[in-house]
């Protein structure tokens, strides 16, 4: 049973978003659909915002909470997880596992006090170049509005 919240969510004073600031976004993409979708966007010369680094994995089901959390730990402002549409997974049900892992990640991220809007799960097929560009643009704008992550800094966490 989920407890009914009776205490208000603590508010972090939103940081001032610096002028001309661009977010640092990490995109995890599966080899078979989303990464190929990004390729399609490229060969079709669809313009989109370039403020992300892409990490290719064999299946979205591989993207465990540790990956996303480490990206935040090292200063990412947003993390996008993408994979094949349901029913299209190259490994049949890897993307179903991705949903489970993503839900878990989201719960931990919100406990830490990072905004939920800093992470996103999207299905992008290999043919959907235009959709890839649209998702990237939307997500980049969304994260830009939130401003820098409180953990952003010199890349790696201070050691």
């Amino acid at each position: 049973m989920k407890a009914v919240r009776t205490k208000p969510r603590p508010k972090r004073t939103p940081p001032k978003v610096p002028a001309n600031w661009n977010p640092n976004i990490v995109v995890f993409a599966c080899n078979w659909c989303s990464y190929a979708g990004a390729d399609t966007a490229g060969v079709s010369r669809i313009q989109h915002q370039p403020h992300f680094r892409m990490i290719r994995v064999m299946c979205s089901g591989r993207i465990q909470p540790g990956f996303v959390l480490r990206a935040f730990e090292r200063g990412a402002d947003g993390v996008l997880v993408s994979g094949c549409h349901f029913g299209d997974c190259h490994y049949i049900s890897g993307n179903e596992r991705a949903v489970e892992q993503f839900e878990k990640t989201k719960n931990v991220v919100t406990l830490l006090g990072l905004e939920e809007a800093r992470i996103r799960l999207e299905w992008i097929s290999a043919a959907e170049g235009a959709r890839f560009a649209q998702v990237i643009n939307e997500f980049t704008d969304q994260v830009r509005k939130l401003g820098p992550s409180p953990l952003a800094g010199n890349g790696r966490a201070k050691e």
């Binding site: 407890a3 009914v4 919240r5 009776t6 205490k7 969510r9 603590p10 508010k11 972090r12 465990q64 909470p65 540790g66 990956f67 959390l69 480490r70 935040f72 730990e73 931990v108 919100t110 406990l111 830490l112 006090g113 990072l114 409180p150 953990l151 800094g153 966490a157 201070k158």
Partner: peptide, 28 residues
């Protein structure tokens, strides 16, 4: 780490600071 380092990342993020955790949402 058998959990992909997720928990260590959580700890290091807390160590780095700057976060306002939402850790008491279960407190009724």
């Amino acid at each position: 780490c058998p959990h992909g380092g997720a928990l260590q990342s959580v700890m290091r993020m807390m160590a780095k600071g700057g976060l306002q955790q939402d850790r008491l949402n279960w407190l009724t």
